[in-house]
Structures are given as structure tokens and as C-alpha cells.
Amino acid sequence: MPGAGPGVPKTRSNATPTSPISFWDAFVLIQQLVNGLTLGAVYTLIALSFSLVMGVLGVLNLAIAELFMLGGYFGFAILLARLPLPVALVAGMAGAALVAAIVERIGYQPFRGAPVVTPMLSTLGFSIILQNVATNVWGSDPLQLSDEVLSGRFNIGPASISAIQLVVLSVTVLLVASLAFLVQQTSIGRALRAVAENRDVARLLGVPAGRITLIAFMLSGSLAGAAGVLIGVHYAAITPYIGVEVGLKAIAVMVIGGTTRIWGSLIAGPLIGIVEVMTVAYVGSQIRDFVVYGLMILILLLRPQGLLGSGRGDQSQRV
């Protein structure tokens, strides 16, 4: 807790109602909440990316962690060429979507009849390749942006939010809203939901299941790519290992939100982002993965429908 500094034993009697929380503590807390939300936004996008493929096809695409990393590098390439951020965002999304299409054609299509673990292993193959390619093309040292893409901070009450954080949050909201519109209101969305519910029936009804699968992978890839660009500009640096460090953790976010309902990520993402930032701030940076992955295991075992899922019966609500 904020009041308990290092060395102060945390006992139950410590929480006396008279001890005031100082202004500084409150400021730090709100600042951490903003930071947590920013990280959570990135998690949300990657988790949505994972659960889009998982929800429609029942497959865990492990390459998504590296599509996220790759998207970041594509975006950096554009930024380093002095082009504006929106172009970088589009480039990151399109680049990652294209690579996702390759993953779908080689790493998923041929294994449609195989046990679900087989395409997971083939996408693992892609993630190994992509990480190696990124290391060789851009080097294993962090690639840094020489100057900030956007500078400036806005003060909201006692906390301040940087322009970059504002961009990350608003782009995430925009992308999630577009995805929701696409899935709920368009014919592509209807086809996605039909394939998610029952591929064979969908085909009988004239849905081109093969093309829909490709679209699901590419949509998923573009979300991961966007997340990569956003986290890259947020940290002003990127490494080939960010996929394993941040991207894999989004699997935990997806699980916590519920693998059978993709929108669970909207709550799990910010939640995990905040939990992680708070853990780092008040417990120690080394323990955060323990907390996140531990939570994932507990959810898998105790609430397979996710933190907020209502039960196993809501298959039709998957997407």
C-alpha cells in the first residue's frame, strides 16, 4: 500500500483510519493508473489479436507475439524516414497483416484437419523465424528514436499524461471501436461469427470459409502490428525480444478475459496493465510476471470461461 514505505511492517492494525494519504501518494497512484492504462491498452490490442484467431478458429497463433514486434519495427522504419506517426501506424498494421497472411497460408491452412496443437507448433516455427529475421535485419540492440515523436504533457488534476500516452489510449479506443463495428455490423463480421460458430454449416450457407480464415488472421495481425507501433513510440525504443517479453504475456491477458469471449480482453487488458504497473511500483519489478502468469494459471484451472465469462454455454457470443 502507498502508505507503507520500505521497512515498515505491514500489519492489520497499520490501516488506521486516521492516517491521511498524502497528496504525493495520491499523485503517484493516479500517475501509476495512467501508466497502467497505457500498458493495458497495448495488452488489450494484442490479446484481441490472439483471441480473434482463437475465437474464430480455435487455434493459438504463437506468431502473434512476433507480429507485434515486427509491427513495431515497420513503424520505426517509417518514423526514422521522417514520416508522420499515422503513416507509421498504417505501415505497422499493413506489414504485420501481410506477414499474418503468410502465416495463415503456410502455418495454418495445411493443418486444418490436424490436432489443434499442430498449427500451434507451426506458428511457433514462424515466431522463431520472425525473431531471427528481426535480429539480423535490425540488430539485437534496442533501436531508438532519436527524438520524441510527440512531446508535451497535459495536466489533468494532480496527474499528468503525456501526448504519447494520449495517442496510445485514443488509437486503441479507435481500433477497438472499428473492430467492434466490423464484427457486429458488416457482412465480413457476420461471416466471421458464422465460421466461429460452425465452420461446416457456414460453408453450406455459402460463406467462403477459406477467405474468412485469411481475413481473421490478417485482422488479428493488424491489431498486433498496431500494438507494436504504439509500444515502440511509447518507449521510444524497440528490441527483437519485445515479442517474448510483452507479446506472450498477452496470452495471459486473453485467458484472464476468457478465451471463449473475445471482448473479455477489453476488461482484462487494462486490469492486467494496472496490476502490473502497481506491482512494479509497490512490490518490485521482478515479481510482476509471477503475478500475471500465476493469475493466468489460476483462471485456466478455476474459471476456464474467464474472469467475467458467464459460463461455457455462450458459444454464439464468442465473437
Binding site: 493459438l60 515479481i287 500465476g294 494459471i297
Partner: peptide, 19 residues
């Protein structure tokens, strides 16, 4: 747990140990 759910849980176990 079966299939990919077991894979995800064991992945989590490995990360928990490392952490």
C-alpha cells in the same frame, strides 16, 4: 486441461518459475 489450454498453462508455469 487439454491441447492448447494445457500448452498455455505449462507456458505460464515455466514463466512463473523463471520469475
Amino acid at each position: 486441461l487439454k491441447g492448447i489450454y494445457l500448452a498455455m498453462a505449462t507456458l505460464g508455469f515455466g514463466e512463473v518459475v523463471r520469475s
